[in-house]
Each structure stands twice: as C-alpha cells, then as structure tokens.
C-alpha cells in the first residue's frame, strides 16, 4: 500500500466512523428515561405552614372509607405546645379529624389541661402519615407476605392475604398501621395509590389549603419537591431506625419523632 492510498483510507475510516457518533448524539438520555419514567413517590411536609385545621384527616377518612367515629386514622396531626416553665405537651384529639377547636390539651382518659396563654412559649402542628420507608420494617415481619413495597415506592397491604395478626402494627416505628374496624385486616396510608395512578393528588394533599403537604417523584431531579429535598434543610422521623423514610419534613424539632 502506498503512503498516499493509506492516508486516503485513513480519512475515509475517520469520516465513516464519525457519522454514527454524530447520529448517537440525537439520542437524549432524558427522553429515553421519560418514556419509561422511574417513579419513586416521596412526601414533603412543611410544618411551618400547618395550622392544624385537620381537613387532611377528614379528606383521607372520606376518600378511603375509614369510619369517622373509629379512633384510627391513616394520617393525623399532632399539636406540640412548649410552656415557658419548660413543660412539653403533645396531643392529637381524634387524630385531629375535627381540627384543634379547643385550646385545652387532651391528656387522654378524658382529662384536659388548660395552659395559660401567657405561659405558652412555642407551639406548632405536625402532620403525620406512613413514611413509605425504603427499607420498611413492616413488610419484613409479615408471616404471610401480605404487605409489600411497589416498584414506585409505596407500601401496600393485600387485604385478601392479610390474616390480621398485627405483627406489622407492632413493627412500624411510626405507629402508621392500624386494624381496620370494618375490613378486619391491617390498614395504612397508601399515598392514595388509586388517585396517583389516575394522575390526581392524594386526598390529603388535595385538601390542604396551605400547601403544608406535598408529594413528588424523588427520582425526577426537576420535580419541585425533589428540588426542595435536595436543596433545602429537611429531616426525617426516627432516622436512627434505619428504615430510610420517604416522608421529609421541613421545620422538625427534636421532640417530634
């Protein structure tokens, strides 16, 4: 092969090889992933915005057929009151189904405590629900395999397989599970899975007038919720349990657990 011929062939190879490379740049990885969105649902609670109206609890119970009069709920709101003489009070009367319409603290057993308004140091409300942990304790203890985590990160219970033994109720560090008084199986927050799959917000997110409750896809870096979780100071409940909760809180206090 002559030197001239060799160089000509080299140029042809380089030009030929560069065509498929430039063609490859048309494939945008983002667009490929958008066709198969990898969804992981996460919840964001802004405790600074919550006023304790309890509309979320009312909407949740209505949407998911949890009897109003039963003292169980998939979500609830807690009130924290710190007094100036360094006492702390927490209550959640009827899971805050009717909000906080009494300034007295519900101590349980029918006892109520009035706190002198001048003695109130700080007070706030914290909505709670199932954390849909990445590493849930509840799904591991089920003896019949009735509870599981879906591909998009929601912990569900198969009502036809649950035998109602209550192991998962004990295993959950957050007290998010309870025994359904009508269905006689374990029940818990589903992130309103039926609503999410229809493109709707969950009932509690929908009902909150103050946007204290929000939901998003934590695998989508452009999701506003993911942006907040990535860029702002958020906390999770009981991190030391290693359950990797997927409900994030803005404005946590150390007493909130």
């Amino acid at each position: 092969m002559e030197r001239r011929e060799f160089l000509q062939k080299c140029i042809m190879v380089v030009v030929g090889a560069s065509v498929p490379v430039s063609a490859l740049t048309f494939i945008d990885p983002k667009k490929v992933f958008a066709a198969n969105p990898d969804i992981q649902w996460a919840f964001l609670v802004d405790t600074n915005k919550c006023v304790g109206c309890g509309f979320c609890v009312k909407a949740c119970k209505t949407e998911n057929d949890i009897p109003f009069e039963a003292h169980v709920s998939r979500t609830w709101v807690e009130r924290y009151v710190y007094t100036k003489d360094d006492k702390r009070y927490v209550d959640s009367p009827q899971a805050a189904l009717h909000g906080f319409i009494d300034s007295r603290i519900d101590l349980g057993r029918g006892e109520f405590k009035e706190i002198d308004p001048k003695n109130v140091g700080k007070a706030f409300f914290v909505p709670k629900l199932c954390n849909h942990c990445s590493s849930p304790a509840c799904t591991q203890v089920c003896p019949v395999g009735a509870t599981y985590k879906t591909d998009d990160g929601v912990v569900l219970v198969d009502r036809s397989w649950c035998i109602g033994c209550g192991y998962c109720i004990m295993a959950c560090p957050y007290g998010a599970r309870f025994f359904h008084p009508v269905k006689h199986v374990v029940d818990k927050c589903t992130f309103c899975y039926h609503r999410l799959s229809k493109g709707l917000d969950s009932a509690c997110v929908n009902a909150c007038p103050f946007k204290a409750r929000r939901m998003g896809n934590i695998h989508d870096p452009n999701d506003p919720i993911t942006q907040i979780i990535m860029n702002e100071r958020v906390g999770v409940l009981k991190d030391e349990f290693g359950t990797k909760p997927q409900a994030f809180y803005i404005g946590l206090a150390q007493e909130v657990r």
């Binding site: 849930p136 799904t139 591991q140 089920c142 009735a146 599981y148 198969d158 036809s160 899975y193 039926h194």
Partner: peptide, 20 residues
C-alpha cells in the same frame, strides 16, 4: 433486602374509585 411482593394486588389498589 428481603421482602415479599404481591404483584397481582397492585392493580386492585389502582382500580379503587376516587371520590375527591
């Protein structure tokens, strides 16, 4: 991590009627 999966149950939850 060890856990169960009930794939057939996912559709049951998805098909629940919404009220709001």
């Amino acid at each position: 991590m060890y856990s169960y999966h009930r794939k057939s149950n996912v559709m049951e939850w998805k098909n629940q009627p919404a009220k709001y």
